[in-house]
Computed example of a mutant assay.
Amino acid sequence: MNSTIVSEFILLGFPMAPHLRIFSLCLILLSYTFTVMGNLVIIYLVFSDTRLHFPMYYFLCNLAVMDICFINTVVPGMLKGFLHQGVHISLGSCLTQFFVYFLVGTAEFFLFAVMSFDRYLAICHPLRYPMVMHRYMCIQLIAGLWLGSFSTIVLPCVLTFKLKFCNNLIDNFFCDASPLLKNSCTDTTMIELLSLLGASTLYISVLVTLISYFKIVLATLKIKAGDGRGKAFSTCSSHAIVVTLIYSSCIFLYAKPAKGQGANLNKKVAILNTVVVPLLNPFIYTLRNQTVRRSLSDILLSYSKTRKSHVK
């Protein structure tokens, strides 16, 4: 095949009118700012307040780190695309983005399953919880989910890195699997099969999460106090919204063959797990928590008193 092997790609992003481009830029930039700030606040609170030195908050802190990594992998390039139609990205940068995106994304699936199991133990087996979910177990689980993520994606990524690419146009706002493989000069069947096999981990994560929340709901129904039951259902329903968004969008995008999907629809769905879910995570999973809110208000109050004393 007489094709030029490319060393740089052009991300086409979202074709739209100039006024819509500016509006989208402002909206995404605002979401990006709130996401980063919200997650940084969570990380600071967990490290600085001993009241948050418990397994659930360690997992939430890890989720905050993941969301910061995840959104910084994709969104800066998206913002650049709103300013300039057709963003140039080197082959090395594109493949690095591809690797980090799937590494963090897969780790987050595992983390959602771990967090749901943690809540199941805490609510359904409160007496056994301290013995099972101790600090060493938390470290093992966090290390295990990162290792599991790396093991799941490493082989498809290595094979993708070895591909030769003949087309330099990527009809997306980041280096996603489907548009990247479409640009290859060589056969990608093996990579697609391995990717589908890796996507089975998504179903395992979904299954663990669903079973855990189902058992939590059954336990909640046994609560006699109306306020306690309403609070538990409120928490579960808000968590279910986030989990449904991320799982449904990722099943649509990745749990099927990469080729033959509509690019425009894929880009719109990808916004859910690259922008919307990282924005919702800190506010739904953490900042609605009473202990976290109390910790935040104490720090703000302390800062306010310190500032007033300096002024005097």
Rank of each mutant, 00 (worst) to 15 (best):
L127G: 09
L40C: 15
L95F: 12
G148F: 04
A122G: 10
I139T: 12
A64L: 06
L79A: 08
T160L: 04
P130Y: 02
I142T: 04
A64F: 07
C157W: 12
Y129A: 04
Y101R: 03
C61S: 11
F102Q: 02
V75G: 09
G92E: 14
V46R: 01
G77I: 03
V46P: 03
I89A: 10
N167C: 15
L127Q: 08
T50G: 11
D67Y: 00
M66Y: 11
Y57K: 13
L63F: 11
C138T: 11
N62W: 06
C166N: 14
L45F: 00
F59A: 03
L91P: 06
Y129Q: 06
L45Q: 05
C94L: 07
V87H: 05
L163M: 07
F47M: 08
S149G: 13
F82N: 00
N62F: 13
F82A: 05
G105C: 10
I170M: 14
R51I: 04
N167E: 14
T33P: 00
T50V: 14
T35W: 01
F112G: 00
L141N: 00
Y120S: 05
S151E: 06
L127C: 05
A107N: 13
E108D: 10
A64I: 02
L95S: 08
M37W: 13
T50I: 13
Y136V: 14
T96C: 13
V132F: 08
R128D: 13
P55E: 12
C138W: 10
F150R: 06
I170C: 08
G38E: 02
Y129L: 01
M37V: 15
M78R: 02
A107L: 07
G92D: 14
I123N: 11
N62I: 06
C157G: 04
F59D: 01
G86D: 11
M37H: 12
W146E: 04
F161G: 12
I142V: 06
C94P: 01
L147D: 09
F161D: 11
C166L: 13
D118N: 15
V36E: 03
F165Q: 03
G144V: 05
F165W: 05
N62P: 04
L141S: 07
Q85R: 08
F150A: 14
Y129N: 08
Y120W: 09
I68T: 02
T33N: 09
V41P: 01
T35H: 06
M115G: 02
C138S: 13
L63G: 02
V158H: 14
A143K: 02
P156M: 10
C61P: 00
K80E: 15
M137W: 11
I71T: 09
M78C: 06
I139V: 15
G81V: 03
I89Y: 07
L147I: 13
I123A: 11
P156N: 07
G148W: 01
F112H: 03
F112S: 04
L83P: 01
V75W: 00
C138V: 14
L45E: 08
C124F: 06
I142R: 00
R128E: 11
L159Y: 10
L159M: 14
L45A: 13
V65W: 12
D67E: 13
H134P: 06
D118R: 02
V100H: 03
I42H: 03
P126G: 12
L111K: 04
A107P: 09
Q97W: 08
V154I: 15
Y44T: 08
Y136E: 13
